[in-house]
């Protein structure tokens, strides 16, 4: 039973890892960021490339990936997203376009493959990342052997959630972000630099996705299309949890992860996935604003 619950928890932590950044960008900024999955992909490729060219392991890759994807997120906000605030559907289409561009950039090795240059670690193929020795194999929790790497992901997710909560609730910039979330024009009227807050929020959300990518690269295949299915799961969590609610994202990912794990243990994975989507539909029908939400805007 412990192992089943552990797997549920692990599934939940993976959902949360991806959804954390989305909660912030979607919640705070009203941007449906379809390129979020590609930020995860960029984080994963950062791990691959830093492993090949810097000899860095997974842990070293985490700050690198955070900086790279946050920088990329910041650039996307400055160039594209800031022109689209208040136009929800347009942000969806525009960021989807960005997602396609990023996928192809990796697949075509930033266009170098047209010139016959091959960059090791990029291209359309599958990549793999070496996991450091101490994260391989199993560890024992409550007398049950569990996957050590999954335990590590849970730990990272807890730390990142805590850090995000602290930033949002205990720092001046966090207060500004929350003010912008509640009412953009009122926040601006109070002297908050909304454009700056937006850019930083988007960069931070993208950075979180980058770290999620590092964690994914350790046990999933790394390839250019890997982000697309993750963004779907991410939005699922955000919608169930309540837009913009950190607590909601934690609760929703825990709930969906455990449902998935338990149903899969009793029946099979295919049915489990159907039950998860069923739960999402029920929640949305009964509580259109999600499990935790506030009145705003």
């Amino acid at each position: 039973m412990v192992d089943t619950l552990f797997i549920g928890l692990s599934l939940g932590s993976i959902l949360l890892l991806v959804a954390l950044g989305l909660t912030i960008t979607y919640g705070a900024m009203g941007v449906i960021n379809m390129a979020h999955g590609e930020m995860v992909m960029i984080g994963a490729y950062t791990t691959v490339l830093s492993g090949i060219y810097l000899g860095a392991n997974l842990l070293v890759a985490m700050p690198i990936a955070f900086v790279i994807s946050a920088g990329l997120g910041w650039a996307i906000e400055k160039v594209l997203v800031r022109r689209l605030y208040g136009r929800l559907i347009d942000t969806l289409l525009a960021t989807w376009g960005v997602a396609l561009v990023l996928q192809q950039a990796v697949r075509l090795e930033f266009g170098l493959s047209f010139l016959g240059i091959h960059v090791e670690g990029l291209g359309p193929g599958l990549q793999n990342v070496d996991v450091p020795d101490f994260l391989r194999g199993t560890i024992t929790i409550l007398g049950t052997e569990v996957n050590g790497y999954r335990a590590f992901i849970i730990l990272v997710t807890v730390v990142m959630t805590a850090v995000t909560w602290l930033i949002m609730n205990r720092t001046p910039i966090g207060m500004q972000v929350r003010a912008v979330m509640r009412n953009r024009s009122m926040a601006a009227a109070c002297g908050i630099d909304v454009a700056r807050v937006n850019a930083l929020t988007f960069a931070y959300g993208s950075g979180l996705a980058g770290i999620a990518g590092v964690m994914m690269s350790g046990f999933k295949t790394v390839f250019p299309d890997m982000g697309a299915p993750m963004v779907v799961d991410g939005f699922m969590v955000v919608v169930v949890g309540g837009v913009g609610s950190l607590l909601g994202a934690v609760a929703a990912s825990g709930l969906l992860g455990e449902i998935n794990g338990l149903v899969a243990a009793v029946t099979n994975d295919i049915l489990a996935r159907a039950v998860v989507f069923g739960t999402v539909i029920v929640v949305i029908v009964l509580m259109p604003r999600g499990l935790f939400s506030f009145k705003g805007r």
């Binding site: 192992d3 089943t4 797997i7 692990s10 599934l11 993976i14 996957n147 999954r150 999933k220 295949t221 998935n260 794990g261 899969a264 243990a265 994975d269 489990a272």
Partner: peptide
């Protein structure tokens, strides 16, 4: 690519 439950 989520094999946790199956391998368990």
């Amino acid at each position: 690519s989520e094999w946790g439950s199956m391998v368990n």
